[in-house]
Design a protein around this nucleic acid. Structure first.
Length: 288
DNA sequence: AGTGGCTCCTGGCGGC
DNA sequence: TGCCGCCAGGAGCCAC
């Protein structure tokens, strides 16, 4: 999202701000206008699931939640719908914030308060700060299921329901395993899996399971290579076992009961033990 | 510390 | 066709 947005907003100056749905922000239209109008976009950043437009002394921080979309040219799907928020730029471009379920939020934040704004957000998985050691230390002593641990934004930034399920599959870890029960070797697998899964998502421009669309209007392709998410009953791409769906922490959770055993898989020396097919890194687009 | 339940919303879909 | 319940990418809040 950020990568697509950047070239279209960088260097542009905000000329007009319209709040068409007052619940989009705790701040009023007047406050947002005052904070944003006349400022030039210096850059864009992402922190977890938050998108940050750097306007110099002020930041525009956006969270799309479930159905938020940033759109330049509304297509038929948006026709007739009202955007919740619109920004005009000095080159005549207009950015619309559409959001069917209206869960998305945005904030105008003084640049000096950025750190405070993100104070409760955990490590950034694609940054150097996210290490196996830090992950292991974070999980130590926790009884929360891995699934809940991964999607807790205070512990890790940016891992949502899809990416948590996919990362656990890649790491061959059962979503209900208590985080604290994960050993060093497993933590290494989990660390790698989280990084690879998020990177894969970015490489494929997101997961448009339903309506995520980048600012130019194209859909992401990550959903095409999902291994477990929303594949309930379909054969595991590695071993053929039907993918199972359970609810963890109120969230739909998908996993392969064979590749992600409840108990940690013991390292076996006997060649007869275990099934080779479930070993190794699961292919990210097996079956194609 | 962790969980479950509820809330904020709308719309798509399957079942009857 | 119409109605109903269930489900959905997130996360904050509260009671327990």
């Amino acid at each position: 999202m950020r990568r697509c947005l950047h070239p279209r907003v960088a260097g542009r100056t905000v000329t007009r701000v319209q709040v068409l749905d007052s619940t989009v922000s705790r701040q009023s239209q007047a406050e947002l206008c005052e904070s944003l109008t006349g400022r030039r976009v210096r850059g864009t950043r992402r922190r977890g699931k938050w998108l940050v437009l750097d306007l110099g002394e002020m930041l525009l921080i956006v969270h799309l939640r479930m159905t938020g979309r940033l759109i330049w040219e509304p297509d038929e799907e948006e026709q007739g719908r009202r955007p919740r928020f619109v920004i005009d730029f000095d080159d005549g471009e207009r950015l619309h914030f559409f959001d069917v379920r209206r869960f998305g939020r945005l904030w105008a934040v003084p640049a000096t308060e950025e750190e405070e704004f993100f104070a409760d957000i955990g490590a950034e998985p694609l940054e150097e700060e996210f290490t196996v050691e830090r992950l292991l230390a974070g999980m130590a002593g926790r009884t929360a299921p891995l699934k809940s641990f991964l999607t807790d934004q205070r512990r890790l930034a940016g891992v949502g329901n899809i990416y948590a399920d996919e990362a656990l599959f890649r790491a061959r870890l059962h979503p209900l395993r208590p985080a604290g029960s994960v050993g060093p070797r497993e933590a290494e697998r989990l660390h790698r899996a989280v990084v690879e899964t998020l990177q894969l998502g970015i490489d494929h421009e997101g997961s448009s399971v339903e309506s995520f669309v980048d600012p130019a209007g194209s859909r992401g392709r990550f959903q095409e290579i999902l291994n477990v998410y929303q594949r309930t009953g379909q054969p595991c791409r590695v071993c053929g076992t039907p993918i199972r769906r359970i609810v963890v922490g109120g969230r739909a959770t998908h996993y392969c009961p064979h590749c992600q055993p409840r108990r940690s898989m013991m390292v076996r020396t006997s060649p007869a033990a275990g099934r080779g097919g479930a070993r190794g890194t699961p292919p990210h687009r097996a079956g194609t």
